[in-house]
Structure formats: C-alpha cells, structure tokens
Design a protein around this nucleic acid. Structure first.
Lengths: 180, 180
DNA sequence: CTTTTTCGGTCAGCAAGATTGACACATTTT
DNA sequence: AAAATGTGTCAATCTTGCTGACCGAAAAAG
C-alpha cells in the first residue's frame, strides 16, 4: 500500500498528488467553493427579483463594455432566447444600454448604464470581501497556484475568452476578442 | 501609480495582488473554470436523461456510503422535496439503495448499488482526465495553492462538511460527520 | 406511558432559467 | 440580386429549484 504524504505538502515533485482520491477531493473542493463563492451575490439579487443569470450578464457587460450580443452569447454558452429573457428586462429597467455597431449596424453593442454600474459594483463588493479573505488567508503564492489550476480547467474556447478579458481589463474599452 | 508585478509571481509578500482587477479576474476564473469542469460529466448525463442534480447525489453518496438523507440534504443545500424528485428515480432505476439506520430505524442510509458505482466511475473518469490535465500542467505546488484558496472560499458549514469527506475518504465507511 | 420531536416521504402548485424549432427583419457580403 | 449574418421574438418544453401542507414511524422527553 502506498503511504499518504504527511500533512504539509511534500516539497519535491512527486506523483502521489495525482492519486484518485486527490482528484475526487478536487471535485468536492470545486463544488463547495463555487457554491459559497456565489452565495453573497445571490442574496443581493434575490432582493431585486433577479437571479444568477442577470448577474452574469451584468458582470460580463461590465468586464467588456461595448461587447456584441454574439460574443456575450459565446461567453455565457446559452441560446439567444435564454439571453433575451434576461437581457430584455435589464434593458427595460435601465441597467443595460444598447448602441448600434460602429461599422456593422446590425450589431447591438452592450454597455452598463450608471445604474447598471452601481449594481455591478454592489454585487462585486459582496464577492470581493469573500475572495479577498480566501486570498489573504492563502497568500500570494497560493493565489498564483489557484490561478494556474483554474486556468487549466478551462477549455480552449474559454481560455481564449478569458484572455480577452484579461488583456483588455483596466484599459479603455478596446475591441472585444478576435470575433470575425 | 503602482507597478504590476512581472509575469512570474513576486517572491516576496506584497499587496498588489489584492487589487480590484485581480479580484474581478478571480470571478472570471471561477466562472469559466467551473463551467468547463462540469461539461464532461454533463455530456454523459445527457445521454442517460439525467442532470447535474443526479450527478451530485451519485457523487456524494459515493463519497460517503451509508450517508443519511438529512446529511445529504445539508450538503446539497436543497429541500427534501427537491432531493426526492432526483433520488426517487435513482432508487427505482437501481443506482441507489436504501437501508434502515443501525441504531435509529427512522433513518434511511444511502448506498450506491453496483450499477450506481459503475455510473459514478464513468462520471468520475470524465472529470478525472480534465482535472488531471490541469493539475499536471500546474504542478504540485500550484495544486496546493489551488486547494488552499478553494478551501478559503467555503463558508464554515461547507468547510466542516468537506473535512468530513476528507477525513473519511479512503477508509472503510465510518459514521458520517458529527451529526447529532 | 403519553406527548412531542425528529427523520423521512409525498402531494400539489409555482418560478427561474435553460432548451428547441420556426420565423422575421435589417444589414452585410458575395 | 441572392445568400449569409446578427439580432429579436413567439411558443412549447424540461430540469431543478421553491413553498406549504400533511403523514407515518420511531425516538426522545415528560
């Protein structure tokens, strides 16, 4: 029978961490971690009669102002009918604004209104505290490891989308992704 | 203006990694990572006319054989009506088996049948490959960081539940958690 | 021993958020 | 002029949650 490593992780590279049990633990970790990560924002959304779907739209429109409907659909990986049911109310209630594409007038570029930005911030703050605590407790090196693994869990498409957000974040609303 | 650290994480402890942008990136990371993590199992479930809810039941019954319905409800954080609608078919279709509690006969302890274990394994294999790749690419140290952060993202309840699974995993079906 | 509480199941109705298929319209591309 | 693209919309359906009400068996409390 192989021995388990002692409680602090072994310094040297080894293969024990790939054992089946470690991978099942990863499943648990992702389930519980993701669930509680979203809980804070969910409570706020509840009070507004919104759900996670609304949050995702607000989040990603906030992350990529001027994003095209088609690109948002690709990120959310849902149908346009599903998006429509969430996006339409957000527009009617003044959280999201549409503007025609600059070169292609069929496009509807999406932006947050001032109200939308305020809500985005409120939702962000709820999760910010939570993630901040986890990051602080774990330390910068662990955070870097976390990022690497999460990035590795993405498929090629998601990775491209993520890198699009990563690149443009903090800059002045550039063209989004490599679409067409 | 503060400088960003160079691409490899800075050796020394610093506070830059707590900036707002880093935390928004964490949101993206969790969204994309979790989404693609579940995708493999989802495809299998689709073919069986099951959904993620079924997977969660199979997973956690497999993780803690002999788990009580009440403890499973606490882990899944859903109502017993919601669980019933998923659990009942799983029992009828022979994936899950119930047995009366050893000391308390009101309890129904849940186990996977041989069929259930086969399905659990099939679902596990799908995610195993995916997580394995991410773990391998990131390396053992990053994996340890990932674990720390994910653990930090859990609330106190989830942490206790997770530790219960962690403790008992690999051992011969001990009593589950600290219930009552 | 009686009462109350707990564990689990079940019925009925409702809502959110996803799906598919079909179709419409304006615009861009060929 | 025709085809393809970007977006919107109608209608029906499915999964997975929810609430409220109620039941039965067994355990715990009195």
């Amino acid at each position: 029978m192989p021995e388990r490593p002692a409680s602090p992780p072994p310094a040297g590279r080894n293969l024990l961490f790939l054992r089946e049990e470690e991978l099942r633990l990863a499943q648990d970790l992702l389930y519980f971690g993701y669930r509680d990560f979203t809980a804070g924002a969910d409570r706020i959304l509840d009070g507004l009669g919104m759900g996670r779907a609304h949050h995702r739209v607000i989040h990603f429109v906030g992350r990529a102002p001027g994003i095209k409907v088609g690109d948002l659909l690709a990120i959310l990986a849902i149908t346009k009918q599903s998006l429509g049911r969430v996006l339409q109310p957000l527009i009617e209630q003044g959280y999201v604004r549409q503007s025609p594409g600059l070169t292609d007038k069929r496009q509807r570029l999406l932006h947050l209104t001032a109200t939308g930005e305020a809500l985005e911030r409120q939702l962000f703050e709820a999760q910010r505290e939570w993630v901040l605590r986890a990051y602080r407790e774990a330390g910068p090196q662990a955070v870097e490891g976390f990022r690497q693994v999460m990035r590795g869990l993405m498929g090629p498409e998601a990775r491209a989308q993520f890198e699009g957000l990563e690149r443009q974040s903090g800059r002045a609303r550039p063209a989004f992704l490599r679409s067409a």
